[in-house]
């Protein structure tokens, strides 16, 4: 089921990139996507996909709003002559376990202005991030864990 969905997504991406929404083009994308999945996939993934769509949409709006706020904060620091920032590398304990969860979380942290994920420890318990505003370390960690990680895990589990 889930593999079928991925196949549809790949076919859609093909149709998007070539820019022709004809049946022939979509079929060509479907066949190509089938070949790609046949090469890439191993093991099986999970289903229960459709009830999570509302979660994803709400998260998208929340995240875009956060993105713009954080950009303005950095913009202020870039334009004004003094640097108010306190940068540093901090460790965030991870609740996310699988490859997918950690990847999505790390990418979302990187896209948020002000934080940049650097590396994951080999035992996958800690994510090291570079942050620009470490006014209170515990507060920053709590913020990332409750606002980002909890929502990501809700969506992916």
């Amino acid at each position: 089921m889930n593999v079928f969905l991925w196949n549809i997504i790949l076919a859609l991406a093909w149709a998007l990139l070539t820019g022709h929404f004809t049946v022939n083009n979509f079929t060509a994308g479907f066949v190509l996507g089938y070949l790609v999945l046949w090469v890439v996939l191993s093991g099986e993934a999970k289903s229960s996909y459709f009830k999570k769509i509302s979660l994803v949409i709400r998260f998208a709006f929340f995240y875009i709003w956060n993105l713009i706020l954080a950009s303005l904060k950095i913009a202020y620091d870039v334009i004004t002559p003094r640097h108010r920032m306190k940068s540093g590398v901090i460790a965030i304990p991870l609740d996310a376990k699988s490859d997918l969860e950690i990847t999505v979380l790390a990418n979302l942290i990187t896209i948020t202005p002000g934080t940049l994920s650097l590396d994951v420890s080999t035992d996958r318990r800690v994510l090291y991030i570079h942050a620009m505003y470490i006014d209170d370390k515990e507060e920053l960690i709590q913020e990332i864990k409750t606002e980002l990680e909890k929502r990501v895990l809700e969506m992916l589990r």
Partner: peptide, 30 residues
């Protein structure tokens, strides 16, 4: 999709190279 991946790889490589950090850096737990 690609911007965070590129930033992550470059940041990691730069950290491993030992690129000098700003003197205002507060912590470095890595």
């Amino acid at each position: 999709l690609t911007a965070p991946v590129a930033a992550h790889m470059l940041g990691r490589a730069a950290y491993l190279l030992g690129v000098p950090k700003w003197e205002g850096t507060v912590t470095d737990e890595l």
